[in-house]
Design a protein around this nucleic acid. Structure first.
Length: 268
DNA sequence: ACACTGACCTGCGAGC
DNA sequence: TGCTCGCAGGTCAGTG
C-alpha cells in the first residue's frame, strides 16, 4: 500500500509527466472521493496549472495557480496519464482533462482515497497533527523519548501513529522493527536509549532505500501505466514465511488491529 | 489523555 | 460450482 516511499515516487513521476500542465475540465464520477463540494472542486480547477509538487507524510500536494490540490491515495489510489479515448474501467473516479489533450485519471478500487482543494499558500507543517517527516532532524532519539513518555502502546502502534512520525504504514513499520530487533508488540514504555537511536537510523535507512528503488521506475514509465510507486518486493518479515537473517519461521500477530509480522528469534 | 474498535470500500481466497 | 465469510489497510469518529 502506498506509504511514504511510494507516495514520493508517485509525486516525482507525476512531476515528470504533468508539471506545468493546464486543467481544462474535471469530471468527478464518484463524488465521495472529494472532500467538500465536488462541483465547486471541478469549477475551481478549471484553468489551473500543476506548478509545484510536494509531499507531506502520505499526502500528495500540488500547488496550482490559485489553489492547492491535496490527494491521499489511502490503500489503492493510483494516477494514470492517458488519452481520453483509452478505455477506462469502473474504478476510475476522477478525470482531469489537460489542455495538451491528455487525461489525468484517478483510479481507486476501494474508494478510500480522498482529495480536496485548499488555499494556495496553505502551510502543511501542522496539517492534521502530522508528526515530523522521518528525514527531518526533529525526528530524533530525544523526540522519541519525549513522545513515548506516559504511553504504554505497542511499538507497532506508535510507528503507525501519523502524529508520531509522518508516512510510515503497516509494511515499513514491520520492516523497521525487524531491523531494530524489536517485537511489534513490545510496549513503547520498555525500550532503551539505544533502541530510540536505532529506530531513527533504521527508519531513515529503510525509507531511503525504498525511495531509491522506487525512483528507478520513473525512467521506465509509460503513459498508460498506473503511477503507483514501487511496492516492497524484498521485505525481511512482512508477509514472509522464513526470516532472512536466521531462517526461523516468521510469526504473525494482530497488533492494534493490524497484521504484524516478526521473527521470534531476532526480535525481542 | 490514552488506547482500542468499527466504519468506510471492494476484490479475493478459503472453506463449506 | 456457488455461496458466505473474513481479511487486507489508512484514517477518523466513537467508545471505554
Amino acid at each position: 500500500m502506498p506509504e511514504l516511499p511510494e507516495v514520493e515516487t508517485v509525486l516525482r513521476t507525476l512531476e515528470h509527466m504533468i508539471k506545468g500542465a493546464e486543467i481544462v475540465s474535471v469530471k468527478v464520477i464518484y463524488p465521495k472521493i472529494i472532500e467538500g463540494d465536488p462541483e465547486e472542486f471541478a469549477e475551481n480547477l478549471k484553468g489551473e496549472h500543476f506548478n509545484v509538487f510536494e509531499r507531506r507524510g502520505k499526502y500528495l500536494i500540488f500547488r496550482m495557480d490559485h489553489f492547492t490540490l491535496v490527494s491521499h491515495l489511502r490503500m489503492e489510489g493510483k494516477y494514470y496519464v492517458q488519452q481520453p479515448e483509452e478505455p477506462r474501467d469502473r474504478h476510475m473516479h476522477v478525470l482531469f482533462d489537460l489542455a495538451d489533450g491528455r487525461q489525468l485519471r484517478y483510479r481507486d478500487t476501494r474508494k478510500f482515497g480522498r482529495m480536496f482543494l485548499t488555499d494556495l499558500n496553505y502551510d502543511f507543517a501542522d496539517f492534521h497533527e502530522l508528526g515530523p517527516e522521518p528525514f527531518d532532524e526533529a525526528f530524533c532519539a530525544s523526540y522519541i523519548h519525549r513522545f513515548r513518555k506516559g504511553k504504554t502502546q505497542p511499538l507497532k502502534s506508535m510507528l503507525l501513529d501519523q502524529s508520531f512520525v509522518a508516512g510510515i504504514g503497516n509494511i515499513y513499520a514491520d520492516e523497521i522493527l525487524s531491523a531494530c530487533g524489536l517485537r511489534p508488540g513490545r510496549s513503547c514504555k520498555r525500550i532503551t536509549k539505544k533502541d530510540e537511536e536505532n529506530i531513527v537510523t533504521e527508519t531513515r535507512r529503510i525509507l531511503s532505500e525504498a525511495i531509491a528503488a522506487g525512483g528507478t521506475t520513473i525512467r521506465t514509465y509509460t503513459s498508460s501505466l498506473g503511477v503507483s510507486g514501487l511496492f516492497q518486493n524484498d521485505c525481511c518479515v512482512h508477509e514472509q514465511k522464513i526470516c532472512r537473517r536466521c531462517g526461523s519461521e516468521i510469526h504473525m500477530k494482530r497488533i492494534g488491529g493490524r497484521s504484524s509480522y516478526y521473527c521470534p528469534v531476532c526480535q525481542k
